[in-house]
Amino acid sequence: MPDLATHLATAYLAGRFVKLRRLAAVFYLGVLLPDLVSRPIHIVFPSTFWMAQSFHSPVVVFLFCWLISLFFRADQRRPVFLALGAGSLLHFLFDLTQRHLVAGYLWFFPFSLERYSIGWIKPDDYVRWLPLTLLVTVSVFLAGRLMTGKGGLKPGMERRAGGSLPGGRPRSEQV
């Protein structure tokens, strides 16, 4: 698997194309979810490799997304589920690019135990490229802030710096 920072960076960049707004946090949770529900089990109990692998499959992660969404208020369950699912799908697509020495992931568990991977990139290479990934992500973040005007001083602050009153009126208007 790529590291979670790389997964989160892809989620942030993908999220720039859609207006996530308040769903951003659950979308980011979704992009980490397949690893969050599987890796700790494997790290703590190495002999449970296949259980961990089964949790890192679309069907089981779909169930996790559904379960998590049910903890939310009724009117928010569907959007939360969709955000979690979209994030998880992005995670799986990114994992598909990995090159493993042995096999890949259980894409069709529990219907098939065949493992698939495109095999383009070694998992360690994602960590090697992480500084570049973060640089690109931070650059996109800062560019977005500048373009939307959130990076600079607010108009009111500018006027105040030029000698206005706390209320925003220029000093000349002072009675």
Binding site: T48, W50, M51, Q53, S54, F55, V59, V60, L63, F64, W66, L67, L70, F109, P110
Partner: peptide
């Protein structure tokens, strides 16, 4: 749903 997740994981294991 939680039960199904546990059963699938156990079955795989």
């Amino acid at each position: 749903i939680a039960g199904l997740i546990v059963v699938l994981g156990w079955w795989a294991h």
